[in-house]
C-alpha cells in the first residue's frame, strides 16, 4: 500500500490538463492555425480572404528570390548558432573560473555582457550602423586607419555586409548563451573537478571529459533556442542594412516582413511564416534527437 492516497490526476489526467492545453491553444495554436488558413487564401493586408487556393504557395515556389534568401538565412543562422555557442561557453567558463579564483569584477563583467542582451534589436542595428559607418569619419574605419589598416567596406560590400550583420547579432546574442552555459556549468558537482585535479588531468582533458559531456543537455537546449532566435532575427538587420545591398542580408524573417508590409501580400507572407515555422520545428527536432538524447 502506498504511503500517500491517490493524487487528483491519478487515473484521469485529462480534466486537469484541459486548462493548460486550452491556454496554450489560445495563445499559440490558434494564431498558427490562422496563419495556415491565410496561407491558402488570396488575402492581402487590405483585403479579407475571398477565395482559397494554392496560388500563394505556387507564387512563392516560383519566386527566384527565395533561393537567395534561404541561402543567406542558412549561412547567417549556421555561423551565428556555432559562434554563439562557442563565445557563450567561453565567456561562461571564464566567469566561472574567475569566480572560483576570487577575481574581482566578475559580476561587473557578467553584467556588461548582459547589457548587450537587453538592448532592443532595432537599437542594436542602429548602434552597429554607426560603428560600421564607411564615411571617412566612421568609427571602426577611423580606428583601423589609425593603425594603418582598412578601410573596410562593412556594409556596402554584399559579402562583408552579411559578416557585419552576423557580428551585430553575435554581440547581442552571446549573453543569452552565456547565461544558459553559466547556469549549467554551476550545476556540475565541483567534486568531479577536484577528483580530476587530484588525478593530474590537464585543463583541456577536464573540459573534454567532464565539462563538455555534462553540458550536453544545455548545449542541446541552447542550440534549439538560439537557432529559433536567429531564424526569427529581422529587426536588427532591418535597422542595420534593411536587407541590402540588394538582397545580400535579407534573411527569411525580413523577407516575410517585406512581403507583408511592402507588397501587402498577407497570403504570401503567411506561406513564408509557415516555412519559417516548419524550419524551426525541424531544427528543434533534429537537434533534440541528436544532442538531447541521454548518453548511453
Amino acid at each position: 500500500m502506498s504511503a500517500r492516497g491517490p493524487a487528483p490526476a491519478d487515473g484521469r489526467p485529462l480534466p486537469w490538463l484541459v486548462p493548460a492545453v486550452a491556454m496554450l491553444a489560445l495563445f499559440y495554436a490558434v494564431p498558427v492555425l490562422d496563419v495556415a488558413r491565410l496561407a491558402f487564401s488570396d488575402a492581402t493586408l487590405v483585403r479579407a480572404p475571398e477565395g482559397w487556393s494554392l496560388a500563394a504557395l505556387r507564387a512563392l515556389l516560383a519566386d527566384p528570390a527565395l533561393g537567395q534568401v534561404l541561402g543567406t538565412t542558412l549561412i547567417f543562422t549556421a555561423i551565428n548558432v556555432v559562434a554563439l555557442q562557442v563565445l557563450g561557453l567561453a565567456i561562461a567558463l571564464t566567469v566561472v573560473r574567475g569566480e572560483a579564483r576570487g577575481l574581482r569584477g566578475m559580476t561587473a563583467f557578467r553584467t556588461l555582457v548582459l547589457a548587450a542582451w537587453v538592448v532592443p534589436g532595432i537599437a542594436n542595428g542602429l548602434i552597429w550602423q554607426m560603428l560600421f559607418d564607411e564615411a571617412p569619419y566612421g568609427t571602426l574605419n577611423s580606428m583601423l586607419g589609425a593603425v594603418g589598416l582598412g578601410p573596410v567596406a562593412w556594409l556596402s560590400d554584399p559579402n562583408m555586409a552579411l559578416a557585419s550583420a552576423t557580428i551585430a547579432n553575435l554581440w547581442q546574442g552571446t549573453a543569452f548563451s552565456m547565461i544558459v552555459f553559466y547556469a549549467a556549468r554551476r550545476g556540475i558537482d565541483p567534486v568531479l573537478y577536484e577528483v580530476a585535479a587530484l588525478d593530474g588531468a590537464s585543463p583541456w582533458r577536464t573540459f573534454r571529459s567532464i565539462t563538455l559531456p555534462l553540458l550536453r543537455t544545455a548545449i542541446a537546449v541552447n542550440t534549439v533556442l538560439v537557432s529559433v532566435q536567429t531564424l526569427n532575427t529581422f529587426d536588427s538587420i532591418l535597422a542595420l542594412t534593411g536587407g541590402g545591398p540588394g538582397r545580400a542580408t535579407e534573411v527569411l524573417a525580413l523577407f516575410t516582413f517585406n512581403t507583408v508590409f511592402q507588397n501587402l501580400d498577407l497570403a504570401g507572407g503567411s506561406v513564408l511564416a509557415l516555412l519559417l515555422f516548419a524550419i524551426s520545428m525541424a531544427l528543434a527536432a533534429l537537434v533534440h534527437g541528436w544532442l538531447g538524447r541521454a548518453p548511453a
Partner: peptide, 9 residues
C-alpha cells in the same frame, strides 16, 4: 561617388 552609397539609408 564612393561605393559606400549602397549603405546610405
Amino acid at each position: 561617388a564612393p561605393s559606400r552609397v549602397t549603405s546610405i539609408t
